[in-house]
Amino acid sequence: MKSRVIVITSGKGGVGKTTTTANLGTALAMMGKKVIMIDTDIGLRNLDVVMGLENRIVFDIVDAVNGHCKLKQALIKDKRFDGLYLLPAAQTKDKTAVSPHQMKNMTNELRKDFDFILVDCPAGIEQGFKNAIAGADKAVVVATPEVSSVRDADRIIGLLEAAGLTETKLIINRIRSKMVKRGDMMDISDIIDILAIELLGVVPEDEAIVVSTNRGEPAVLENVSRAGAAYRRIARRLTGEEVPMYSLDDPENIMDKFKKMLKLAR
């Protein structure tokens, strides 16, 4: 399989880029893929704690690109899956410690050993963003169903296009079916119409995400988490599999229908 470098970006901060990177990386590894997740948020390292790997860090991305260590030495092996690795961001240096050119070389070198290279992008459109997208073949934009997030997503899609990344796909995160139903949250079609890009998947708001970040165990490892299930489906789509989009409230609806059936039977 040809390896793919996918950047996960958003413009706006805190919409779920790191959560998405950790869950998609883990889900792809569960499917037997070789995956490296790169944290490019220099100064605000987070992917390590979401993955529960913070105690294993010796070297970081800045050490690796500047030759303080071999690239392989900076890669941290996941505790759960053989094919899953993390390249952590530097915590002390600043964003200019890495250049887009260096990022491109590094991701190209990683292609030899990995099927998927997932790049967790920092918020914003500055240097960190430029570094993160430099070596990418494809981009995934994460947005929440809010005006500010969708607006920033639109801006990012424009910047990605200008950088030659045209096949950008969208993940809508933290959707709440109850709010959508009562008309207090934009729904999937509203957002897709406005942004005019392809939908890669929808992830519901889910307390399991908070619990899983507390533990350092991505939600995809959890069978009952709805967000985890959504991320597993998205990971299958990334491998090229056709996975139908579930309607937003499917899991709830099935239960509702079941309850109704019981009531009718009585």
């Binding site: 809010e146 005006v147 969708v150 607006r151 959508v180 009562r182 008309g183 207090d184 949250m185 934009m186 729904d187 509203d190 406005i194």
Partner: peptide
């Protein structure tokens, strides 16, 4: 509904 307002403003 506030989502219609959101969509319009966007």
């Amino acid at each position: 509904p506030s989502k219609d307002i959101a969509r319009e403003r966007l």
